[in-house]
Structure formats: structure tokens, C-alpha cells
Write a protein that binds this DNA or RNA. Sequence first.
DNA 1: CAACATTATGTCTTTTAAGACATAATGCTC
DNA 2: GAGCATTATGTCTTAAAAGACATAATGTTG
Lengths: 114, 114
Amino acid sequence: MKVKFKIWFEENGGVAFAEGRRILLEAVDRLGSLNAAAKELGMSYRAAWGKIKATEKALGIKLLEVTTGGKGGGGATLTSEAEELILKYQKYTGRMTLLIEKEFKRIFENEKSQ
Amino acid sequence: MKVKFKIWFEENGGVAFAEGRRILLEAVDRLGSLNAAAKELGMSYRAAWGKIKATEKALGIKLLEVTTGGKGGGGATLTSEAEELILKYQKYTGRMTLLIEKEFKRIFENEKSQ
DNA sequence: CAACATTATGTCTTTTAAGACATAATGCTC
DNA sequence: GAGCATTATGTCTTAAAAGACATAATGTTG
């Protein structure tokens, strides 16, 4: 038996942020373009863009600084709010992952200490 | 912003146990019948029975001791394995809930200590 | 000013999960 | 043995989520 979990943030009912969006933002940061990030992750541009917009709307912050036209057609970079969000999210979920798995072992796999 | 989470157990790919099944088992325990439990929870008997069977198959244990016929038509009670599972599950998820919410506040709502 | 690679967005389709419907089987009670 | 309230199970339908398709807009570069 294995434990699985999912942690996400909500703001007035809608999903605001979770793992998939973190991965997407990190790819944008690395590649400088939402289109390139979507390609790398094997998802459609439409889907990637939709997730970004949903988070921006839910949290009321801007995640991407975008340009269109010009050399390369344009691109996107993370705002400082996006960077801060990723950083905190990473720290938080990292710690939770450790705790969730440690306590699971303690209660479900170590018969003597339950 | 609020944190939400879901914790469940898996065994060879399939969902083995989670909150909905815990609630269902507790209702069976209280009411002495899977049918009555399903009614109380507003779900169809078919759905309730399917969840029980899925867990039994995934974990390889028997959850319900059932009888058919007789006065009242029959009924169901929890096996000791089911009772133990519920107990451990409660203990585990209770602790995790506290930690997940406490750490969330610490990192996302207390600006000075992040 | 045409080409280009991107962002932007509405809508349609597909996939998946959840639930509903229908029907059989059980076995005590009267 | 008819009635009853339950368990047992296959199949069909519906709802929700995810993804695909199509098309417009932008603005620099050559």
C-alpha cells in the first residue's frame, strides 16, 4: 500500500495553483516562451495559456510579462510575483511530501509503534 | 488563498482507500446495513457497493460481514480489518490535516518568518 | 509591407469518472 | 411458498474535466 496525495491552492472556489502549473511556469522561465514551454511539456498552447490565465484571475496577480512580434515573434518571462509563488510553493510542498510519507510509514508500516 | 488537499492510498495502481470510503464504512458500522448507509449518504446502493468491492480487491482484505435474507432482509457489519483500517486512517489524516494547514499559514500567511 | 513566431481566445470533441437503471439471488418469517 | 429487505452485479447514461481545432492579433525584422 502506498500513500498518494495532491495539494493545491484555491481562491473563491477555483483552483489557483498546483503542481502542473508550477512545472509550466518553470518551463516558461527556462525557455522564455509559453509556446516553447507547452511544446516541451507535450501539451497544447491553448491548454497552457488557459492554466496561466486561470491562476492569474484566481490570485489577482500577473504571472507573465509577455511581448508579441519582433525577433522570434515574442515571448514570455516570469514576473517577480510568479517567482515568489514558485519558491514558496516548492518549499511548502517539499516539506509536506516528507512529512506525509514519513508519517505514513510510521502508522501503516511500523506495526510496533502505532 | 486556501490550501486544499486529498490523501489516498493505492495498491497496484488502483485507489484503495480514501475519505469517501471511510465515511461510508462508518455509516455501515452505525446503521448495520450497506443499503441504509448508501441512503443516508445520498448515493446509490450500486455506487456504495462498488467502492467497498474495489477496496476489498485492492487491499486483499474483507471489509464487510454480510448476511442476506431473514428478518430485515439481511445486513452488513464491519470486519476487524475494516475497523483497524478506519482507526489508522483517522489517526493519520488527522495529523496530516493539522500539519498541512499549520505549515501553509507559516509560509503563506506569516510574511516575517518565511 | 510581407513574413514570421509568438500571444490571445472562442468553440468543439474526446476522454474519463461518477452515477443511474435494471435485474438476479439470498434466506428468514409468516 | 409468497413476501420482504437486503446483498450482488452487469450495463447504460450523464456530467465534468481535459484537450484539440481554428482563427485573430501583435509588432519587429528584413
